[in-house]
């Protein structure tokens, strides 16, 4: 069942290309703007390394939160989601499939953005890239669990997709703090400290948000 749904979700994205196009272009534009800004402020390489994590997570938060609700719009259009429920499929299967699709899209674009920003700022990142990949996947799991749950809420509001950042970002703070702390660690020390408090916090919030989201999703989409 999940395979069929995942195929449908990815096919929807391949056909419409909306989320990826919006997300990737926004990331690219923000990357260029940040690179230009950094370049014109004459920071030395050491300072650039310090500011790099802030930039990368800012770009991530901004571009992903604006584009992620797009992927759910085709579920609302024609009430297709109701059609899925009428086949007797359970809400959590739909949630998992949506979550996986979002994770794939967000993670792919985000990792590309890291490489792009690093090369624009001539910051060496390739040696520690796998650390970034691990960190990014953990952040993206928490981020997508929460945004997959909150997207239907925001789409049903009068602000449509624009309500999403307002309710999503405050809840993301713990994950973002951990992400900033850990990516500075990677930048300055070259590796990820798996025993640090920030890493534990990140894991704890991943688990909490995933568990809460999968259990609450049926309340959001069903009546």
């Amino acid at each position: 069942m999940i395979k069929t749904l995942l195929h449908k979700d990815l096919l929807l994205e391949i056909r419409s290309k909306e989320t990826v196009a919006l997300f990737a272009t926004l990331s690219l534009l923000l990357t260029v703007i940040s690179a230009v800004g950094i370049h014109s402020s004459f920071l030395n390489p050491e300072e650039v390394r310090k500011i790099f994590p802030v930039l990368i997570w800012l770009i991530f938060i901004f571009s992903s939160t604006i584009s992620i609700s797009k992927s759910f719009e085709y579920e609302i259009k024609n009430n297709a989601l109701e059609g899925l429920f009428l086949t007797g499929i359970s809400p959590w299967t739909i949630f998992i499939s949506k979550l996986l699709t979002n994770i794939i899209i967000v993670l792919a674009v985000h990792l590309l953005t890291i490489i792009l920003l690093a090369s624009f700022l001539t910051t060496p990142i390739l040696e520690s890239f796998h650390h970034y990949a691990i960190l990014s996947s953990l952040v993206v799991i928490g981020y997508c669990s929460l945004s997959t749950l909150l997207t239907p809420i925001s789409l049903s509001s009068r602000l449509k997709g624009l309500l999403l950042p307002l309710i999503l970002l405050p809840l993301l703070f713990p994950i973002l703090f951990a992400a900033l702390e850990l990516s500075s660690q990677i930048m300055l020390e070259g590796s990820l400290d798996l025993g640090s408090l920030a890493f534990t916090l990140l894991l704890v919030f991943d688990v909490i948000y995933f568990t809460a989201a999968i259990n609450l999703f049926s309340f959001v989409v069903h009546e």
Partner: peptide
């Protein structure tokens, strides 16, 4: 189980428009 027994055709088509 109820959903499996029911066919509901509404004003909205319940279809994915890009597919």
């Amino acid at each position: 189980d109820h959903f499996k027994k029911v066919a509901y055709v509404a004003h909205e088509s319940h279809l994915y428009s890009p597919l």
